Simulated scan of single mutants.
Amino acid sequence: MPTTRRTVSAEVAFAAETDHLAVLSVAAARTGGGRPAERLSLRVDGVEAELEEAEDLHGTRLHLARVPGGAQCTVSYALELDGGAGAPPPAESVDFVRYTRPSRFCPFDEMAGTADALFPGARGGGYGTLQRVRDWVHEHLDYVAGSSTATDTAVHTFLTRRGVCRDYAHLLITLLRGLGIPARLVSVYAPGLSPMDFHAVVEAWHDGTWYVLDATGLAPRTEFVRIATGADASETAFLTTLGGEITLGEMRVSAESSAPGTEDQEARVVLPLPDGRGSGVTGR
């Protein structure tokens, strides 16, 4: 049987208005093995900058560089990944605390009682609760590009009933946490996504496993390549500036699979680390 190959890439241009520390989160999550054919660079005024790699939660790889004010910068990343996918990162006890607390974009404490009112009797309802909440968000939001800002929280999305992938993810996380279910945001490369971009999805905990949920339904979950994992988009942004300002320029993201799958929202899917082993489908 031919080996499935996923090819992903990203190019992000930005202008540094002032001196700052740039934090990139575009590389696929860490694995225990090698990562052949991976390339990452940051060019500052045409000269390749030195990048320092730092590991964040759940295999997230951050790359840091000092950038002077006035510089024109380009981030380039490419990865070819053969095979399926390996095991998800292990869950730690603190995860169940971290991912049931309110966070910057998922303030479920401001929506007190909303989750229980929308889903009566859903607490302790098993995997069906995850699917039920996912379906509600999918059915009640409209995907509208440009309809939200970088500071909008799940409360704003709930009220306006529209947004993009991060808004869908934030509202889904907020409602799940409101039901006492640990949930977190994952940024991914998503073969099959249209329009193509970095994609935000959700992992929710049930019975010893983190299951991936995508309320947009825009791409097959079995094709996703994990980039970063955190409480919400504040911990998974593809570019963060510390101590300065930038102007974002042109951005291009690509994600392709040699054997494209189709999305089955009834399937239970895990989002493993991208080490090229095994399968991400666990059943229905």
Rank of each mutant, 00 (worst) to 15 (best):
L179Y: 12
L21S: 11
G70D: 01
L141N: 03
R104P: 07
T157G: 09
S194H: 10
P89V: 01
D95S: 07
G243W: 13
G124H: 05
L172W: 11
G32K: 05
Q265F: 12
L185S: 07
T240P: 02
E53M: 10
E50S: 08
R5G: 08
L79W: 03
G59C: 04
L218V: 06
D109P: 05
V212N: 12
Q131M: 13
R184S: 05
L213N: 08
L185R: 03
R61A: 04
V188Y: 15
G125V: 02
F158L: 14
F96I: 01
C73F: 04
T129R: 15
E53I: 01
G125T: 03
H170N: 15
Y211N: 00
R134Y: 06
I173H: 13
R123G: 08
A219K: 05
G261D: 13
A215I: 01
A112F: 04
A112M: 01
S187K: 10
V94T: 06
P68R: 15
T74M: 10
L118C: 07
P88R: 03
P68S: 13
P88L: 05
T4L: 11
E11L: 03
A22G: 14
G128N: 14
S9L: 02
H156V: 11
V281T: 09
R277N: 09
Y127R: 09
T222E: 11
A16P: 04
E203W: 02
G69T: 01
A28V: 11
V186F: 11
